[in-house]
Design a protein around this nucleic acid. Structure first.
Lengths: 335, 335
DNA sequence: TATCGTTGGTAAAGCGATTTACCAACATCG
DNA sequence: CGATGTTGGTAAATCGCTTTACCAACGATA
């Protein structure tokens, strides 16, 4: 394949000039005439700079790794979409890793980080990220962004309007007259879980309900886990008339559990879930959700690694704000 | 960061020896004593080879780009999961591009291909891939695998057991006594659409039904497109008692259309869809599907670019075979 | 006229790993 | 004893691009 030196020869200039033309270094001088000659040579020979050489020289690879808990999960996929969009604009490409894939994958990633192949690292997921990866990222000072995953490392954390979302969801149920509202939360101890819990409790408190009387169970953001957790919730509290789910997937799992228990949605139990999905209105009970700025979170993450991670350790993506999307999983309680 | 020369110095050997130790070149001679010294130095300095330098030298980057039509689509995401698994085992990392993301993204990809940064290219999607990308991949002789996307280029194409899947789906409806079975197909003219159509028609023919009497409409594999196409299908053929959908997402769209038209599933109209999704049984009507080896297709694709693309132009992933998953979207026709 | 700034360009030193060619030292063998 | 391998190791040339340092030519300025 044609290399820079070939272009230089074809255009009758030195390679330095070609480099300047390519990188559009406007501060450095190259006459219009030669610039045109060089550009013609580039076109003629279908030249493209060797990425490895550029990376070696500049220590900028244009690569950002994104670690997702599970690509198949539509909620996370939406984050990825946002990241894609932003990456395209910033001239970056995205390396995608599934944190569930296992050790080989983690080793490969660690090798890339150690080998200076990454301009940044975006981590989403609840914490099953290889220590080697984290350690390497820290020592090599790779700009790292955490998406909700509050790992205990020194990196910038982007959060969603978690409290507001849970508040909105809970308040919606309250407005329909519900008083016995259970909570199907996300993983216990995580920062965003705590925030949502705070929103849930605030809404309850404002309605004059003692949050301590309202049951909470925790669940991984997956369908099966949601089913299991919801059974637990129902088992201990058969008189609930409504459930706030902190994740759509666990809400979907909850729908199964409710079905198995012979409870109708929304007639027997109402449900509101955080995060929207495209197929929400074709579910067994068209699901009322609170949409979150996931796309924007993905965008922001790439933006940050591109522009340089700020000193601020905690950042929030709160636009657009969490918005309630009413479908038909909420009704007035009949008990 | 530590580089190879640093290790060499620390271990008191030349850099060539270090390189041999790292690459475990068993044919070349290095005494156990020095090998140990070198390995200790590597550990002590937390050394990792610079990827860019390796790539520059060897012209092997360990990177494979995967172009998906839309990451958010759970069907494609499943392919990605398979690719991930295989990539991890073959020491490769995956660059993921959304073909819907636009021109900047395509240009970036083209630059990477031209710049020798890719060991392979896997393309899924119906054809909206930049010509520049395709042209570059061809001239640079990048191993390219097509996943159903039958672009008109010289590359290896992997297909699914399309005919069998459509046959299975159709036969299931036939077995329940349906005779007026419409088809909500995928994009017209694509090879895999034709194969599925062949399966659909074969099953019909075997049951003594003239396929020409059975209506077919085409649709992109997306929810909205499915809704629109299904309305068309219904509009022209109000007496249909069942529909075979060539894609779950269009099937979900169809469920909306059916709902809007006041038809109950499965009481008024039965549905079977190709491809399974995790939330199929919590849909308005628990959806009977034919699961396809999508994960395996993703795996195979990476396997092929790793091991070298075979001369064979057409490959099929047919294990596990398409399997019918019965839920409750199919009933005996009542008319 | 001597000096200075500007314009347009060149040569060459890296970036870090791999690999080829080469070389001591030492054992083996006829 | 001289030829012939084998073992364990070194030096240096790449891979292709960027960037620093340097230079010639030319007009402007004092």
């Amino acid at each position: 394949m044609a290399k820079l030196a070939d272009i230089a020869r074809a255009a009758g200039v030195s390679s330095a000039v070609v480099s300047r033309v390519i990188n559009e270094d406007r501060t450095l001088r190259v006459s219009e005439a030669t610039r045109a000659r060089v550009q013609k040579a580039i076109k003629d020979l279908d030249y493209a700079p060797n990425i490895a050489a550029q990376t070696l020289r500049s220590s900028k690879s244009g690569l950002v790794a994104v670690i997702l808990h599970d690509v198949t999960n539509p909620v996370y996929a939406e984050i990825l979409r946002g990241a894609q969009a932003s990456a395209a604009q910033n001239g970056k490409a995205l390396l995608v890793f599934d944190s569930a894939t296992g050790a080989e994958s983690a080793n490969r990633l660690a090798a890339m980080i150690g080998g200076g192949a990454l301009d940044g690292l975006v981590i989403q997921g609840a914490g099953e990220v290889s220590d080697l990866v984290l350690a390497r990222a820290a020592t090599r000072k790779i700009p790292t962004i955490l998406l909700q995953a509050d790992l205990d490392i020194d990196a910038c954390l982007i959060s969603l309007p978690d409290e507001a979302a849970a508040d909105t969801a809970t308040r919606h149920l309250l407005d329909h007259g519900h008083r016995r509202i259970g909570c199907l939360a996300t993983v216990e101890g995580m920062r965003f879980t705590e925030s949502r819990l705070a929103g849930y409790r605030r809404a309850l408190g404002d309605a004059g309900i003692d949050p301590r009387d309202s049951p909470v169970v925790f669940s991984a953001p997956e369908i099966e886990a949601g089913t299991e957790a919801c059974s637990r919730l129902l088992g201990g509290n058969p008189d609930l008339t409504a459930i706030v789910c902190f994740n759509v997937l666990s809400a979907i799992g909850a729908m199964k559990a409710l079905g198995d228990a012979g409870r109708q949605i929304p007639d027997d139990v109402s449900i509101v879930a955080v995060h929207d999905v495209p197929f929400a209105d074709v579910l067994k009970a068209p699901l009322t959700t609170v949409a979150m700025p996931l796309f924007e979170m993905g965008q922001k993450a790439i933006q940050l690694v591109s522009d340089g991670v700020p000193d601020t350790q905690l950042l929030a993506v709160d636009s657009p704000p969490p918005t309630l999307i009413q479908r038909r999983s909420v009704a007035t309680p009949n008990r």
